[in-house]
Amino acid sequence: MICLEFEDLLLRWEDLDESARQALDAHLSVCEHCAEFREALRTADAELEQAFAGIAARPGFEAAVLRRIRTRPVSIVPEILDGIAWLSLCAGLVLPVRWLLPETLSPIYLGAACAPALALALWLGYHSLLEFDA
C-alpha cells in the first residue's frame, strides 16, 4: 500500500522543489511500496507516450480530406450565412404555399399542404445545397 502523504508528491514530481524531491527520494529508498508505485507511474507514462505515438492516420487520409473539400458544392452565400440562408429557403418554399391556400382552411389541412414544400426544403438542406454545420 502506497503511503498517502507521498502519493501526491509522486504524482506532482515535476512541480516539486529540490528539497521536496530530496525528501521524497529518501523515503523511496526505504519504502518498497512507494518505489514500486513510482516505477509503475514511470512505466505508464512511457507506455502511454509510446502508444499515442503509434496512433497514426492511414495512408490517404490527407488526400481524402482534400478531396472532400474540393468536391464540396459552392455556396451562393458566405458560409457564416449558410444557416440563415437555409432557413430562408425553408420559409421561401413554405410561405407561398400557405398564401395560395384559403384563410378558412383548417390548420390540419394547412399543415398537410405545406408539408411537401417543407420536406423539399429539408431535403435540399440535408443534401448540402447549402451546407450548414451546427
Partner: peptide, 20 residues
C-alpha cells in the same frame, strides 16, 4: 486539469501494477 491528470495517472499506474 491537474486534478484530472493526477487521478488519471494514478489509475493507470495502479492498473500497471495490477497487470504485473
Amino acid at each position: 486539469v491537474k486534478t484530472y491528470m493526477h487521478r488519471g495517472r494514478k489509475a493507470l499506474a495502479e492498473a500497471v501494477l495490477e497487470s504485473r
